Amino acid sequence: MNLKDEFKAAVISLKEDDPGFEPLALEIFRYQAEQNPIYKAFLKNLDIDPLKVSHLEKIPCLPISFFKNHTVVSGQIEVQHIFESSGTTGSQNARHYISDLPFYEFLSLKSFEKIYGSVTDYHILALLPNYLERDSSSLVYMVKGFIYNSFSTDSGFYLDEIGELLYRLKSLLQNTSRKVLLMGVTFALLDLAEGDFNLDFLRKYEDRLVIMETGGMKGRRKELLREEVHQILSETFFTQKIHSEYGMTELLSQAYSTGDGWFQASPSMKVLLREINDPFTYLPSFSLGTTKANSKSYGKTGGINVVDLANIDSCCFLETQDLGSFSEDYSKFKVLGRFDNSDVRGCNLMVM
């Protein structure tokens, strides 16, 4: 087993709040600091000696914009697939070079099932129109894996066939015992919610229907606060909770919200919040040695940095352009929007 395989085995074995996360992250950091040319140059320009970095919060995070203009890879890889962001007209798309699809498939399924239980408990209906129009979407690839592993011949993707989607949804709720996961990009779910459709049949099935938005207006609609989106969807679909998925092209791990707006990261992923005006200073958190009683960062907005240990073949330490805040016990995070000068992305929502 080579070093990368040892890292991947260690990542797969991580549990929630695993004390082994930080030492593993530091090991991978030193590996990528040497074997990733782009990250190595980034650290050199910051005058960072990797051997002197001894804490997770001291690891510099690479801006995700580097994925647009550079090939961000660690070591020698044999590319199996390229995940590419959709972007907007005239924008440069990010590209994530993938050399171990089974590893991604396993981790993404594990992350989902940790929150929602086995995918075999669900029929999965995916409303991802603009993503389906290209074969490089990491979201589509992930959901394909969920559908395959659900062993449901009634699961599937929908582009613009809204009538067929609703017919299938009603039939599954009325005639099967499984739950139904309706997973959609935000603008498509809003289009469905505001369409001339009779959805009264959903009133009886709140306990079996999970509505999950994945973010994304793509310039198709006016940007809304996530709370506004969820209110519209919950009223239309007769459910108190709208679930959410947080992921992006540059990440191989995901986080999920079960309806309260607070995301729980997978065991392979940790979120840190940086000061808005200082990318190298973090807001206090439990991982920085504070307690709920004396911390002043609860409820404060910061830039989201992600340590995604699934990114062994690219870069695990990323500075996103998303804004977020911590829950009171620091176990979850909320996505509040994006920096004003950042590109419109799939998860873009307005800042409160």
Rank of each mutant, 00 (worst) to 15 (best):
F238Y: 15
F238T: 13
Q240T: 13
Q240A: 15
Q240W: 00
K241V: 10
K241L: 15
K241R: 15
I242L: 06
I242P: 12
I242M: 07
H243E: 13
S244P: 06
S244L: 04
S244M: 08
E245M: 13
G247E: 09
M248Y: 05
M248K: 05
M248H: 07
T249K: 08
T249I: 14
T249P: 13
E250Q: 13
E250R: 10
E250P: 15
L251M: 14
L251H: 12
L251C: 14
L251E: 03
L251R: 09
L252Y: 05
S253N: 11
S253K: 08
Q254K: 12
Y256W: 14
Y256H: 10
S257E: 02
S257D: 11
T258A: 15
T258G: 12
T258Q: 14
T258N: 11
D260V: 13
D260Y: 08
D260W: 09
D260A: 12
D260M: 11
G261L: 07
W262M: 13
W262C: 08
Q264L: 13
A265C: 09
A265S: 15
S266R: 00
S266C: 09
P267K: 02
P267C: 01
P267I: 02
P267N: 03
P267E: 00
P267V: 04
P267F: 00
S268G: 11
S268F: 00
S268A: 13
M269F: 03
K270E: 12
K270T: 12
K270C: 03
V271I: 15
V271Q: 06
V271G: 06
L272S: 10
L273Q: 02
L273H: 01
L273A: 05
L273P: 06
L273K: 01
R274S: 14
R274T: 13
R274P: 02
R274F: 06
E275H: 10
E275C: 08
E275R: 06
E275F: 01
E275W: 01
E275D: 14
I276T: 12
I276S: 03
I276N: 03
N277L: 13
D278W: 00
D278L: 07
D278R: 04
P279N: 07
P279M: 04
P279R: 08
F280V: 06
F280C: 07
F280K: 01
T281L: 04
T281H: 10
T281Q: 10
T281M: 02
Y282I: 02
L283C: 06
P284D: 11
P284I: 00
P284K: 00
S285I: 00
F286Q: 07
S287P: 01
L288K: 11
L288V: 10
L288E: 09
G289V: 11
G289W: 09
G289F: 04
T290G: 07
T290A: 05
T290S: 14
T291Y: 09
K292R: 08
K292P: 02
K292M: 14
A293Y: 07
A293W: 03
N294W: 04
N294S: 07
N294K: 03
N294R: 05
S295F: 05
S295C: 15
S295N: 10
K296Y: 09
S297G: 07
S297P: 09
G299L: 05
K300W: 01
K300E: 12
K300V: 08
K300M: 06
K300F: 01
G302N: 07
G303A: 14
G303P: 04
G303R: 10
G303V: 15
G303W: 00
I304T: 09
I304S: 01
